[in-house]
Nucleic acid binder design. Structure first.
Length: 576
RNA sequence: GCGCCCGUAGUUCAGCGGAAGAACAUCGGUCUUCGGAACCGAGGGUCGCAGGUUCGAAUCCUGCCGGGCGUACCA
């Protein structure tokens, strides 16, 4: 909500009151939305519900409202179009309001101060007994963006990497290593070596299902808490995996506030189980301990302890929820985990609900779709790690970076720090592709469209930033103060300004819906508008007053694009 | 079987009660360009199908069809 909007809202409220509509009823109906087609106006009001309130036909009321909103120094025109009223702001007021706020880094363009929310974001959370591949990137990249978005809006954010360093997958890795492993080879290339072990286990267990029993025994021994060989193995393998993950995290610019894996809750699960028992919802079933959730519409019970006495994923997530509640007092706990685990989180929330734990309502699964790759015959299929053709994330990033490097050699051979920039652009292309569409959609991982840097891609937006930076360098005059600008000279920039005005809504919606793609979409739109504008409006060489006004616009566009990309965890090089 | 998700232009997607959109691909353009990694334009759509609710449905409800995911001792 900008000053422009609140000014218009105030006038509309006065107008509806004059038309005899009760103000408390009218106020929530005065929603100003961008019209479908911006040629209609800057913002529009649908008069449907107000008309019902007034007992009039929508087009009639729209006309009456339009007549009441006479022009002033902010509103230029109010025009009824059927049941809608379309409003147009004065161009100079529009430019002043938007560009001043951006230049002063005021919210929503700049970071807001404490909004009172405390948001825990559980993301990335790879299973460290498996290689870090392309599938892990979605949670990592989405969670990272959500952390940045919430921080921008003034929330206190706890980004948590809930590593899968406990449980059966880890026990299987341990079993494989104890049977066939070799410490020298492990240290040489931990991730690759562990992946080989993982594959070998998968093959051998087909011939020898008893391997799983062996793994279960090892897990039991590990969970006994004794300082035994399993404990030492666990420490070794965990440390090596952690080191190996640091590479991708660094390249993607991802950091965590807390790296507390499942093992962190080893000594907190008993207390959690006691709490469940005390609440009276725990039942025995075939030797296991479960919570039934049929009354909540969930048929499958939530298992909290296996018949062999060991714990499960759910047990640890429950302990983690209690721990986060007392440690952080979160208003929301977001679990950025694939859609295939929906049932798991429905159950987690269900158990907490059945226990009447207040934290239940903070628990929010943020599901996302799979990463698909194209097969030889043109169909889409899941990136599989078990079939042995896992593509390591590092290799994918390398391929993108190499491709970008050759493009730079071709288009900008004199770029001094070409390798560094290629790394930024290449990794961003992959990240951007992951954040472009609604998270629930599967990502179609298609080299051709991702490395084709035309259209709605990361490099397209980054290029817009670089182009704006270039102009600011070339003009050889500092960006003037917003106090000295003749805003009427920016009447021709209305499309850019109106797009800028949408930034706040995009970020807000991204946070509410846990949907970073709203920010991605906004940044694409703004890059497009500024590119169009620059075609016909020169900065360098324009007469001083015009140049100054355009400089403020160019500077604001650059800042807003850098901010938007920053919210997505994407860098914006000055040159590329 | 049951549950959940997805189905909009050739392709990838946005829109999710109020005025059908973008990108890619295709075709045609842009006084050598403050960075052409750009811009402008054209063609291309019974919004999976059928009912219902509504003054109004791509959007909400129901039932189908197609695809995907999940369905207690893995995570």
């Amino acid at each position: 909500m900008t000053d422009l909007h609140s000014h218009l809202s105030t006038r509309l409220l006065a107008a509806t009151t004059e038309l005899g509509i009760e103000s408390t009823a009218a106020e929530p109906l005065l929603r100003l939305d961008p019209p479908k087609n911006r040629d209609h106006g800057d913002v529009a009001l649908g008069a449907f519900q107000l008309a019902k309130l007034a007992g009039k036909a929508p087009p009639a009321l729209a006309a009456e409202l339009a007549a009441k909103i006479t022009p002033d120094d902010v509103v230029e025109a109010a025009v009824a179009a059927g049941p809608f009223v379309n409003f147009k702001f004065r161009r100079s007021a529009l430019a002043r309001a938007v560009l001043t706020a951006i230049a002063r880094n005021e919210a929503p363009y700049g970071k807001a101060t404490g909004n009172g929310d405390v948001v825990c974001i559980d993301f990335s959370s790879p299973n460290i007994a498996k290689p870090f591949h392309i599938g892990h990137m979605r949670s990592t990249v989405l969670g990272n963006a959500l952390c940045r978005i919430h921080r921008h809006l003034g929330a206190t954010v706890h980004g948590i990497n809930h590593l899968g360093d406990w449980g059966m997958p880890f026990a299987k890795m341990m079993t494989a290593y104890m049977r066939w492993g070799n410490e020298t080879e492990l240290h040489r290339s931990p991730m690759r070596y562990m992946f080989d072990l993982y594959k070998r286990y998968g093959q051998e267990v087909k011939q020898n299902p008893a391997l799983d029993d062996e793994a279960a025994k090892h897990f039991q021994a590990l969970e006994s808490g004794a300082d035994n060989v399993e404990r030492r193995m666990w420490r070794l393998l965990r440390d090596e995996s952690l080191k190996a993950f640091q590479g991708p995290y660094t390249r993607l610019g991802v950091t965590f506030d807390h790296v507390t894996g499942e093992s962190f809750f080893e000594d907190k699960m008993e207390a959690a189980m006691q709490r469940v028992t005390a609440s009276g919802v725990l039942e025995d079933s075939d030797g296991a301990q479960v919570v039934w959730l049929k009354e909540l519409g969930i048929k499958e019970p939530c298992l909290l302890r296996k018949s062999d006495g060991t714990t499960l994923y759910h047990t640890r997530d429950l302990a983690a929820a209690f721990y986060r509640e007392t440690t952080f007092h979160p208003t929301r706990i977001l679990y950025v985990v694939g859609a295939e685990q929906k049932l798991h989180f429905d159950q987690l929330k269900g158990v907490l609900t059945k226990m009447k734990e207040p934290i239940a309502k903070a628990v929010e699964h943020v599901p996302f779709g799979l990463v698909l790759s194209k097969t030889e015959d043109g169909k889409w299929e899941k990136f599989a790690s078990r079939s042995g053709n896992a593509v390591f994330l590092d290799e994918i990033l390398d391929e993108a970076v190499n491709k970008v490097r050759s493009i730079i050699r071709e288009k900008n051979p004199d770029l001094p720090n070409a390798d560094e920039v290629a790394e930024q652009i290449g990794t961003s292309a992959i990240v951007f592709n992951d954040l472009k569409n609604s998270r629930i959609k599967d990502v179609k991982f298609d080299w051709e469209s991702m490395l084709n840097f035309d259209g709605e891609t990361g490099p397209y937006v980054q290029f817009a930033c670089a182009r704006l930076s270039s102009i600011l360098r070339k003009v050889e005059v500092p960006v003037p103060s917003v106090d000295a600008i003749d805003w009427s000279l920016l009447a021709d920039a209305e499309r850019v300004l109106l797009t800028m005005m949408d930034f706040g809504t995009a970020v807000q919606r991204a946070a509410e819906q846990s949907e970073p793609s709203h920010v991605t979409g906004h940044v694409i739109a703004l890059a497009g508008e500024i590119h169009s504008y620059l075609r016909d409006h020169y900065v360098v060489g324009a007469e001083p007053k015009v140049r100054d006004a355009r400089l403020v616009l160019v500077d604001a566009a650059r800042r807003l694009l850098v901010t938007g990309l920053g919210l997505l965890g994407i860098p914006a090089p000055e040159r590329m």
